[in-house]
Amino acid sequence: MALFTVKDLAIHFGGIRAVDGVSFEVEQGSVFTIIGPNGAGKTTIFNLVSRINDPTAGTITFNGQDITRIPANKVAKLGIARTFQNIELFDNASVLQNMMVGRHIHIGTNLFSEIFRLPSVTRAEIESRRRVEEIIEFLRLQAYRDSPVGSLPYGVRKMVELGRALAAEPRMLLLDEPSSGLNIEETDNIGMWIKDIRDMLGITVLMVEHDMRLVGAVSDRVMALNYGRLLAIGTAGEVQRDPAVISAYLGN
C-alpha cells in the first residue's frame, strides 16, 4: 500500500476550481513531483495537505490514516514536514534556533519543567542540538550557524528552510519549488540533496518543481496538472512526451 494517497481532491475558491478532482499515490521512499503551468493548483495541493486550506471534496490519507480534516498543527507530528515557495523562515532567529524550532514535536518538555530548568529540559535540549548539528553538517551550513536568517543570502535561506523541515525527522517531505530563485550550481546541489534525502535518510519526497532538468534528474514519478485537473502521470519522460502536457505548456 502507498504511503500517501490523495483521492478525488477538490477545492473551490468562490467560482474558481483551484483543484478539481485530483487523485494520486506516492510510494514509500520515492520522489514524486507535481509539475504544471502557473495557477495549475500545485501549491494549493500542498496547502491542502498541510491543512492551511480545507478541501471542498476528497480525501487525503497518510500512512493509513485519514488526515483530510485534522488540525494544521497535527500534521508535523504524523511525519509530514514542508518548505514554502517564498520561504517562511523565522527571520529574527539564528539558523540554529530555526532548526531547533523544527525539533518542536520531538522535544517533550512542558512549561513547568522549563521554568525550573529541570535536568530533563537540559537533556532534551542537548539531544535536539545534536540532531540539529547533524543536519547543519549534512547541508554544510556550519558557517551560518549563529547568523540571524533574515540577513542571509537567498540560496542559504532555502537550505535553512530545508534543514528546518529535516529537523522534524519527517517520513514525507513536501518541497515547494526547491530550485526557485537558485542559480544552476545551487540547483544541482539541491538535486543531489534530494537524492540523498531519499536514499540516505529514507524520506519520501513530494515536490512541486518547474525546472524540468531537476525534475528529470530526481523524480521517480511525475504528475502534470493544468487548471486544477490531472493531465498525465508517469515517469518524467512519459509525462514530458504526453501531448496534453505539451499543449498545456505551449498552447494549441
Partner: peptide, 27 residues
C-alpha cells in the same frame, strides 16, 4: 528559562511566521 527552551522558541516562531510555525507542529 522560558525563552531559552521549547516554549520560548515557539513564541518567537509564531511571531515571525505563523504558517511555518503551525507546519512545524506548534499549536
Amino acid at each position: 528559562n522560558i525563552l531559552r527552551s521549547r516554549t520560548g522558541r515557539a513564541l518567537g516562531a509564531l511571531r515571525d511566521s505563523d504558517v511555518a510555525a503551525e507546519s512545524m507542529g506548534i499549536n
